[in-house]
Amino acid sequence: MSERFPGWRELPKGAVSPKSSIEYKTGDWGVEKPGIDLGRCTQCTLCHFFCPEGAITISEDGHPEVGMDYCKGCGVCAEECPVKCIEMVRKR
């Protein structure tokens, strides 16, 4: 991470979040990421609803898309996918 983090004197007091959760990117927490085989995807959208981070959105053509700014690689989507077209792959 090249982002400069503020020191304790600059930070707002009161444990106030220094930025909103939209700006607080958590995508770098993950060890794995979902790899979706779109050929086998039935567009059921269950992965979108199960994702605890709201990181999976559905594109206009009906396919799931993973927002890697927020995906923590938990694997819930892969577990819930009824046709098992999501496989968690190790990030490089």
Binding site: F5, W8, L11, P12, A15, V16, S17, S21
Partner: peptide
């Protein structure tokens, strides 16, 4: 530093390795 719907604040949210230590120093 108070909860006010006109100017919302998030107080005491998740504060991990990146900020917690600074808040303790405060």
């Amino acid at each position: 530093l108070r909860l006010n719907p006109e100017c919302p604040l998030t107080m005491g949210p998740l504060d991990l390795q990146d900020y917690y230590f600074e808040h303790k120093l405060q």
